[in-house]
């Protein structure tokens, strides 16, 4: 390769990739590295002191039992959300790829929650859970809705799961629909001719051929539910009595309410590690299930 060619290649790369590389550096890589550095200091706005303290912050994280409880809570929440959102999205997508009348409208309808911000969504469901449902519960004697779901530790957990899943379903549904569209028509036709049942077609043909879509969907729902903050803030505010604080919520409280920036940032790094390990493991495992049609 001549020098001139090299120059040209670099130039073309910079032209197309440069802006996004710089944006990525500015908003992801640099803050991440600075954030990592912060976890080794005792930085404080007030004193301006930022001397290195080694692993002291991580030791604090280790001793912060509440954080580990919230992390375990977050893991349970993520598991339930991912399962619920994906199962629901898969079957909704399946129901909406049959070529029936009015499908586009239904697709739009299911996708809409995704376009509403988490804060608005949270307040919307808060009214539903704490006003509308108890009202109906009282009127028709449904004991399940007699009191607000948000004031009971277990029901508040499910309220969080349901609202997050509701928001995610529309987005995942679009990916599944795209995945189903990629299943070749001739295979389905052949299966039909051979007399395969609807269930058998789903299990033996649709599922294996949409593994790439499933991998993407699980990855997206995993990372998005791990990093949920807005819905948590607007729906339950961590309550009742801090029982529904997700890890992200706990971190923000730690840093900005309790003024322990170093510890909060170190907890954020721990959360990052957990998310990375879970997300990479699942995509590695599921990728092996991919087949060629």
């Amino acid at each position: 390769m001549t020098r001139k060619q090299w120059m040209r290649n670099t130039g073309i790369f910079l032209l197309f990739g440069g802006p996004s590389v710089i944006a990525f550096m500015a908003v992801v890589v640099i803050p991440f590295v600075v954030g990592l550095y912060l976890t080794f200091t005792n930085w404080d706005v007030n004193t301006g002191d930022s001397s290195l303290v080694g692993l002291a912050n991580y030791k604090q994280v280790w001793l912060d039992t509440v954080f580990w409880q919230q992390l375990w809570f977050t893991l349970r929440y993520v598991f339930c959300t991912v399962v619920l959102a994906n199962v629901a999205a898969f079957f909704i997508a399946l129901a909406l790829t049959g070529g029936r009348r009015g499908e586009q409208w239904l697709r739009t309808g299911f996708f809409t929650p995704n376009l509403i911000g988490g804060i608005v969504l949270g307040y919307l469901w808060q009214t539903l859970f704490s006003q509308v449902l108890p009202y109906l519960g009282e009127k028709y004697g449904w004991s399940l809705f007699a009191t607000s779901w948000l004031t009971d530790t277990d029901k508040a957990f499910w309220a969080l799961v349901i609202v997050t899943a509701w928001q995610l379903i529309g987005y995942l549904m679009i990916i599944y629909i795209a995945g189903f569209a990629g299943v070749p028509g001739d295979i389905l036709e052949a299966a039909n001719m051979d007399g395969a049942s609807r269930m058998a077609i789903i299990r033996k043909i649709m599922l294996p051929l949409t593994v790439p879509a499933i991998v993407i969907c699980i990855f997206v729902s995993l990372s998005r539910s791990f990093l949920t903050y807005d819905i948590n803030l607007a729906l339950t505010k961590g309550g009742p009595f801090n029982s529904t604080e997700l890890a992200t919520y706990h971190i923000v409280q730690k840093a900005f309410l309790s003024n322990e920036y170093g510890v909060g940032q170190a907890e954020a790094v721990v959360l990052f590690a957990v998310v990375a390990i879970v997300a990479l493991t699942q995509s590695y495992l599921l990728k092996r299930l991919e087949v060629e049609s």
Partner: peptide
């Protein structure tokens, strides 16, 4: 093609 690298540099600098 000649201008492209310089244009890119300019873009980056302005950013």
């Amino acid at each position: 093609k000649k201008v492209a690298p310089w244009l890119a540099l300019l873009l980056i600098l302005s950013l």
